[in-house]
Design a protein around this nucleic acid. Structure first.
Ligand SMILES: [Mn+2]
Ligand SMILES: [Mn+2]
Ligand SMILES: [Mn+2]
Ligand SMILES: [Mn+2]
Lengths: 225, 225
DNA sequence: GAACGAAATTAGACGAGACTAAGTTTATAG
DNA sequence: CTATAAACTTAGTCTCGTCTAATTTCGTTC
């Protein structure tokens, strides 16, 4: 019924809506999809026509109750595929995003359910993002705190990393940083460089503050359990 | 570079060319693709433009040396996917064709190579069709003899079955007929009904002659080895 | 070898999804 | 409360892959 392109728009709206909790703006969507604004406006009309989004002209769009489960279905496909590619097909986590971004539109729900079963219904994808269940329940979207929100001296556990920049992912995995890794923040410079010490020794790892702000991390304080 | 649709045309031309060894006619292709003739003509122009087919107006098309490997790549994807779906994801062989027919255009060669490796580089797909290697070598396209070519009393081994009719595949597997099954032809009626006896006992299986002609089968005579 | 029917091609249109250029609306500043 | 810049939408065009209707070519028959 829906084209792959329409599905990608719905997915993008879901992500952006999740981030800001406001209506998603045409310009934001255009940038995220890599198209010009008029393309977005025209697509929003089509999606509104089908009751998948509510479009308030000049104000932005949001997913309707019909649109949300469709977006979640695609996100489920995407994240299950990523998990499957890394766990069963020896893909590097830096390579999985593009492959999943294509395949997510073309696998059946049956395919998704079968690989979920093979994987033992995993809760998160290789980058730490939660995988919606077959009933499309999704756990806590995003826990808020990032590496940049902590102080020098804090010990934190990496929760999730952004999955779209392959170069960054390669850099991170080369330096042993995955969801689950425990690190201590050892330096934050005035010019925006964050340095981490890995639990497992080795060299400290430096990250631009912009990157630090894109990586979720939770305090390792007493009340962690 | 090529759209999924273009790939499907190339694949169709390969199949049809393989069957008849002549140039493929516009009408044949139109029927196979489920489109009208002018759609085929216009697509053939585009493919000829890119040197993937040679189009002799009013006579038909054939794949060029550039077009053949592209068709074989898609066929490799298709058959590997079918094998993978049945062997690793518990699909029934009647369900795999449609899923593979979509995914074949969207998986990378890397994905294909990885599942080939996991499967141990299988030579044939679940329906008995040969799988091209990563170097795009393909073994004996089609051995010629079908169930309908044998006499009453002959014992034969099923080599391959057509993979596009899910109902037929369900019927065959319910009656224990797969590539590798050994059967004896026990009756051929004047009104086109072929009856088989399975090696493993049970009831005889009846097939319309049209179906019998679509199933490859090799004599189990002495010189089989 | 002319005529006819089948097969193929050309011509023209449409929907999807993109673009550029031009016109509106909104928000913000003075 | 008006002026202006940014954001958004509208208008019109393009390519892709399809369609129907009209025309051309081929192969065969008389
Ligand atoms: Mn996608
Ligand atoms: Mn991911
Ligand atoms: Mn296909
Ligand atoms: Mn097959």
């Amino acid at each position: 019924m829906l084209s792959a392109i329409m599905e990608d728009y719905l997915k993008a709206i879901y992500y952006l809506q999740d981030e800001t909790d406001e209506r998603v703006r045409t310009s934001t969507l255009a940038e995220h999809m890599g198209v010009e604004q008029p393309s977005v406006t025209s697509m929003m009309k089509k999606l509104a026509e089908r009751d998948l989004v509510h479009h308030e002209p000049y104000k932005g769009v949001e997913l309707t109750d019909t649109g949300i489960p469709i977006a979640l279905e695609i996100i489920r496909h995407h994240r299950l595929l990523e998990r499957y590619l890394t766990d069963h097909l020896e893909y590097d986590w830096a390579e999985v995003h593009d492959e999943a971004d294509r395949l997510e539109h073309h696998i059946s729900n049956q395919f998704a359910d079968r690989i979920a079963e093979q994987l033992g219904d995993p809760a998160v994808d290789p980058h730490g993002d939660p995988i919606p269940t077959a009933e499309l329940d999704i756990s806590a979207p995003k826990c808020g705190e990032t590496l940049a929100d902590h102080q020098v001296g804090d010990s934190v556990r990496i929760e999730r990393v952004p999955d779209e920049d392959a170069d960054l992912l390669r850099y991170l995995s080369e330096h042993g940083i995955h969801p689950g890794t425990e690190v201590e923040i050892v330096e934050v410079t005035s010019f925006g460089m964050v340095t981490l010490d890995l639990d497992g020794g080795d060299e400290p790892v430096a990250l631009p503050e912009k990157v630090a702000r894109s990586i979720s991390a939770q305090s390792l304080s007493e009340d962690t359990s």
